[in-house]
Design a binder for these strands. Structure first.
Lengths: 160, 160
DNA sequence: TGCACTGAGTTCAAAATACGAACTCAGAAT
DNA sequence: ATTCTGAGTTCGTATTTTGAACTCAGTGCA
């Protein structure tokens, strides 16, 4: 988005509000080493404590803490379920709020494949109905795809 | 993406590789309380140590450490610059790798506005050329926009 | 009835990180 | 020579994370 080459002099300070932004709030909710990974488990249908723990290698005490926080913040729900012929247990599943992180999660995964991993990971995201591979893109209000280089931040006009 | 209502029995374990995924790599690079926020500053053109520190309220020792890590990992570059009539200084600017996090960053910001903040933040992302507001969407390989609910994970077929 | 097993935690001590206030240091301006 | 400023370092304290051991309720089996 911002293009550092576009002006030869440096703005002393960007003319935008900053610390109290949406992104800062978001990092409060999921900006730690484990939360996003736990949510990824939920995306893929893993809902049991011990499965998550094994998959991620997260210490029990941290997992317990993170699950409680994600539930408290409304990203996960703790719900009873019963597997065939087994007793009732509790598992965690995504709420609407948690499910809506999918775009972020997919965008970050694609970034990592391109710039960190340097290869495609073992999982792709496809359209359930057509089977076609999906990617994340910027679109304008008429549904046209716009390359990310053309995106720039703009202070929203308040009604005052 | 995953729909917890779609099957009445719970899969014991999701049939997908997990911990060694792209997302885990990505959280190594930017999954702490400050890195994303620092990159946001860079997106908005803030490149000076003390400006970042003031904006975010981050302790100096932590900022120094994060900047060094982000440079080491190739998300930021430390470059000399000179303001009119001032001595040469050093500032930080995004690399291509860092700039490519824009989609993730925008997606997360929109999520936070919708689900955490409950209101639009002070900044919108617009198309530099048309001025139109932009949002993040999933598109298929023919450029058609697909609603996020239709996105499902699928194990990629390896060549073996 | 007693006993081992399992899932889902809790507890706790040690290690790693984060925090914030004070200090440093080089280049410019006076 | 002194002061100012940007960009850090240092360091003692506070908070978090980690991993190993322990708990505890429900089940299945003998």
């Amino acid at each position: 988005m911002s293009n550092p080459e576009s002006s030869s002099t440096v703005r002393r300070r960007a003319p935008v509000p900053r610390a109290d932004c949406a992104l800062a709030q978001a990092t409060e909710e999921i900006g730690d080493r484990w939360s996003l990974l736990i949510l990824r488990e939920a995306f893929f249908g893993v809902m049991r404590y011990d499965d998550i723990r094994e998959d991620l290698g997260i210490p029990r005490s941290v997992l317990t803490d993170r699950l409680a926080k994600l539930v408290a913040r409304g990203l996960l729900e703790k719900r009873p379920y019963r597997e065939a012929g087994d007793r009732q247990r509790f598992g965690y599943s995504l709420t609407e709020k948690g499910r809506n992180l999918a775009l972020t999660f997919i965008a970050l995964t694609h970034w990592s494949e391109a710039h960190v991993l340097g290869a495609l990971g073992p999982i792709e995201i496809v359209d359930q109905e057509t089977g076609r591979g999906l990617r994340v893109a910027l679109v304008d209000d008429e549904g046209r795809i716009v390359p990310a280089e053309r995106a720039v931040p703009k202070v929203r006009v308040q009604d005052g």
